[in-house]
Design a protein around this nucleic acid. Sequence first.
DNA 1: GTCTATAGAGGGATAGAC
DNA 2: GTCTATCCCTCTATAGAC
Lengths: 228, 228
Amino acid sequence: MIETRRKLIDGTIATLRDKGIAGTSARAIAAAAEVNQALVFYHFGSVDALIDQACREGAAERVEFYRSRFSQVSSLRELLALGQELHAQEREAGNVTVLAQVLAGAQQDANLADAARHALLLWVAEIETALARLLVGSPIAELADPAGLARAVTAAFIGIELYEGVDSAGAQNALSALEQLTLLTEIVEDLGTVGRRAFLSRIRRTHPALRPLHDSGSSTTRSEIESD
Amino acid sequence: MIETRRKLIDGTIATLRDKGIAGTSARAIAAAAEVNQALVFYHFGSVDALIDQACREGAAERVEFYRSRFSQVSSLRELLALGQELHAQEREAGNVTVLAQVLAGAQQDANLADAARHALLLWVAEIETALARLLVGSPIAELADPAGLARAVTAAFIGIELYEGVDSAGAQNALSALEQLTLLTEIVEDLGTVGRRAFLSRIRRTHPALRPLHDSGSSTTRSEIESD
DNA sequence: GTCTATAGAGGGATAGAC
DNA sequence: GTCTATCCCTCTATAGAC
């Protein structure tokens, strides 16, 4: 029954959130899902395969949920605000925590690593698309690589999520600092014609190796993600 | 014997690195340390207590090792370069991975959370001290809070470390992006008198709420760390 | 301090009844 | 598809010999 499958996926997410990767056993999942423990193996074959699937489906669902929000963002500040809202909401639901736990388990498990990379790429692709759009025409575009920036932002959010679990005040400080960095980029963008020209010439003079970055080939395409 | 204690701490770090938090059992640790499994409980009482101790001592040792390097850094670019070197070296030794694994386990365990927070604060304090020194006199000091920035950087490094385990090329992109952000701050610092004045007035005009931040009380003191 | 042996709980996975 | 029962393994922790 498709209903049982759904319960097991949801139960896995709840278990990863509440007990961590080390406490996510077939018995614990079955208890959270309120189904028989043997059904884990009937439907998914193994606990690892279930965790893998829960990670993928959980991320896909949440990214889908936020997709239109990402597409409506019209400034870096708004993007950060969306990130903070997402951080707060998903923390309660536990979806980012789940990703962090799977990522921790994935360091020693090639199958989980596939799932974690795939789930992360879903988030990266949204952020990268938004960044690429927002940076068009900005002097920062001379310097910033949307692909790398999107990955750094995603990794930083995972790190802050983990940090929040042990020091929530410190994590708030970290988020404020990211906000300040966003202000820095806004100020650069608002420099006006004279300042902007000085900024650009400064880049060219001090960092001649930097060229417009649209040829790196590292941008994240949809086909790259949908390979399962 | 003090030698056995040492072996167990080292064995715990090696096990966390190679098998993750989910695979770090008394038996696995004892095998890595090449001592009898019962000695885990004789010397530390429980597996959790040993992980706790290994996390604290491992971080303290590595921070101590890098302390003079941090104190010699004289620019944000050098600080980032030190961070990249540290990332590469500690990845092999596994000390950052260990921190990430303990952090994952700490989400559901208050004792481990204490240890993880303590270990993270050791790194945060070094980075914060360096940042506070480097930002003196910089126009960025009007905007940047060294305490929050140090926490963001530390969390980002943990996140990138986990990301590297599932997508090393992507993690390199993320590190490059951080490098680009550093260049952005350098350029702002190099704006010259006219540009700098424009920058400062821009901050005051667009963000009047921002005052010099040295009164926030959130800076990390040594006494705050040495409370065990 | 270190060892062996073991108790007792919980884990993954399967067989077979329904 | 779902359930019970079970096998066999690994786990934490301790008792007791040395």
